[in-house]
Deep mutational scan, measured.
Amino acid sequence: MFYPNSPQTSPQLTQIPYGQQYAMMQRQIQQPYHPFATTEPQARLYPYHYQGPIQQEQGGFITQQSTAASPQYVQMRVTPVDQSIMSGYPNQTANGSSSSSFNYNIHPQQQQQQQQQQQQLRHHAMPVGSVPLQDDRYRKQLIVNYLAPDVTSTDLHELFSRFGELDGARIIYDKQTNMSKGYGFVYFCHAEDAKEAVERMSGYEFHGKWLKVGYSTNPLNIVPSNSSPYVHAGSRGAAG
């Protein structure tokens, strides 16, 4: 039997160049792979992502010199942007860049009308829970959420009447099932009393439920100042 490094198959040491006398086997001759043993700084910083320098080929596509990437890492192929796409944008300079302001050559009167329309939209648009300043009635009506099913309009009136005089209180019921929808409205005579009720009743436990109280901004629920107070009856038909 002959071994790869046996004296019968191995040459004389004098015939082997210096430095390879003890590297006779194939696994010894093959050098191990060192990912950080390279002179390129990109490979030292990113050993798993770097795959060699990027070269520009004919046709405008950018390719990489090395083989496919590892399945664990996804390499994105980048193509140059066609400058003709950006030619339609206004205020574009000769080098292809555009300024931040756009001039669509709008007539001054049209621009003024658009600004007025935007101001009107901001004036009428009102986020949930906010209180408008032009109508004091919005500051007097509250919406009470997360009410228990057994709470009546009379219970709601008695709960909030300790903060001040009320114009009314009612629970909203479903017309088909005649069941409470879980929320109601309270109408105060003074805005200061309503503000105190919002601050003190939010998070209050009532009939096993934690109440959420806020201003009601729905104009359909506003009680006119010259109208008669609501009837605080315990029956659902009268309260709904």
Rank of each mutant, 00 (worst) to 15 (best):
G60Y: 15
M24G: 08
Q176L: 04
T63C: 12
A169W: 06
I62R: 07
F185V: 00
G234R: 10
A68Y: 08
T177N: 04
H107A: 09
K195V: 07
P90H: 12
Q134Y: 10
G184P: 06
G19H: 11
Q72N: 09
M126I: 09
Y46V: 04
A233I: 08
H49A: 10
D136M: 02
L211V: 03
Q117Y: 08
Y230R: 04
H157V: 07
Q64D: 08
E192I: 12
Q31P: 09
A37H: 13
I16M: 11
T177D: 07
Q92D: 06
T38Q: 15
V213W: 01
G52H: 11
F36R: 07
P17M: 15
P219Y: 00
A233G: 11
Q176S: 11
Y3G: 04
N226F: 09
P32T: 05
P71D: 06
Q119A: 14
Q58H: 15
Y104H: 11
Q112A: 12
V231R: 10
I54N: 09
H34I: 05
H34E: 06
Y104F: 06
Q51T: 13
G184V: 01
P4L: 10
I171H: 03
Q30W: 02
V231C: 04
R44S: 09
Q112M: 10
Q111C: 08
Y18T: 05
Q118M: 11
R77V: 15
F188T: 01
Y89M: 01
Q64P: 07
R137P: 04
Q75I: 15
A43D: 10
F61N: 02
E199R: 08
Q28L: 08
P127M: 13
P35K: 02
Q8F: 15
D82S: 08
F188Y: 05
E192K: 08
M126K: 05
A37V: 15
H49S: 09
T67F: 14
T152V: 12
A125K: 03
Y50V: 09
R139I: 11
E199H: 05
G182Y: 01
Q58N: 11
P47H: 09
S161N: 08
S6E: 05
Q109N: 13
Q119M: 11
A194H: 02
P11E: 07
V151Y: 05
E196T: 12
P80A: 07
A94D: 08
V128Y: 14
Y89G: 10
A69M: 07
D193C: 14
M126L: 08
I171M: 02
H49M: 13
S227P: 14
A23G: 13
V131T: 03
G19F: 14
S227G: 11
G203E: 02
G182S: 07
E192G: 03
S99L: 14
S101R: 08
P7S: 10
F188W: 03
Q83W: 14
Q55D: 07
E40W: 12
S99H: 15
P90C: 08
